[in-house]
Simulated assay, not measured.
Amino acid sequence: MTATDARPARRSIPAVLLGSREERLKESQPPRSARIAAYVLFFLLGIAVSICGAFVQALWPPVGVLLALAATAATFYGGLRVTGTRLGAGVPAAGWFLALLLVMVPRPEGDNVLWTNATSLCWLFVGSILGVICATLPTRTSWFPGVPGPPRRP
């Protein structure tokens, strides 16, 4: 046996950070009451990330968009991993979109939070794509969001 045979196989950076599908499917499902509390928390967190992201992306144009998108992706993916359901990523996305609807409406004084410039449109478009990607990642549940599937056999 050589020294190279004893080393574990190298994994890619996304596999190390996000885990493999097999690792995610082996994780235990949180109890229903904990999932419901997490859904409420992530809905409110989605609203907060949306409002803060709207101001951050406009405040620091090139870097602000990246910060807002990183926070958005972390919120959606965090909801997915904490609850173990696709609904866990969909609930913060719903809060994110609800807050965006309120932020996009111009005020009577003529003030806007989101303008039709490249950074605002990039944040809206890429953020919505991130929500769809996170809501369609493999989870421990069946095809319907939020409903635990039958127990998996090893």
Score class of each variant (00 low, 15 high):
A34K: 12
A34T: 14
A34M: 11
A34I: 11
R35N: 04
I36L: 15
I36T: 12
I36A: 11
A37H: 02
A37R: 09
A38R: 02
A38W: 07
A38L: 13
Y39M: 05
Y39V: 02
Y39E: 04
Y39Q: 02
V40W: 03
V40F: 12
V40I: 15
V40H: 02
V40E: 02
L41N: 02
L41K: 01
L41Y: 03
L41D: 01
L41C: 11
F43V: 00
F43Y: 13
F43T: 00
L44E: 05
L44S: 05
L44G: 15
L44D: 00
L44A: 12
L45Y: 08
L45A: 12
L45D: 06
L45W: 09
G46L: 07
G46A: 09
G46T: 10
G46W: 05
G46P: 07
I47C: 14
I47D: 06
I47N: 05
I47M: 13
I47L: 10
I47W: 07
I47R: 04
I47F: 05
I47E: 05
A48M: 11
A48L: 14
V49A: 14
V49S: 07
V49N: 08
V49Q: 03
V49H: 02
S50E: 04
S50V: 00
S50I: 01
S50D: 03
S50T: 03
S50G: 15
S50M: 04
I51W: 13
I51Y: 11
I51K: 04
I51D: 06
I51T: 12
C52H: 00
C52L: 15
C52E: 03
C52N: 01
C52S: 13
C52T: 08
G53H: 00
G53S: 04
A54H: 08
A54K: 02
A54S: 15
A54C: 14
A54Y: 07
A54E: 12
A54F: 08
F55E: 02
F55S: 01
F55M: 03
F55Q: 00
F55G: 01
V56M: 11
V56H: 08
V56A: 15
V56S: 08
Q57H: 08
A58E: 12
A58T: 04
L59R: 11
L59S: 14
L59E: 14
L59M: 15
W60N: 00
W60S: 07
W60I: 13
W60R: 07
P61W: 14
P61T: 11
P61M: 07
P61Y: 11
P61K: 06
P61N: 12
P61Q: 09
P61R: 09
P61C: 06
P62Q: 10
P62H: 04
P62K: 09
P62R: 08
P62W: 13
P62T: 13
V63E: 06
V63T: 13
G64F: 12
G64L: 10
V65Q: 11
V65L: 13
V65E: 07
V65M: 13
L66I: 13
L66F: 11
L66N: 04
L66P: 00
L66D: 05
L66T: 13
L67C: 13
L67F: 12
A68P: 01
A68R: 02
A68I: 06
A68V: 07
A68S: 14
A68C: 06
A68M: 04
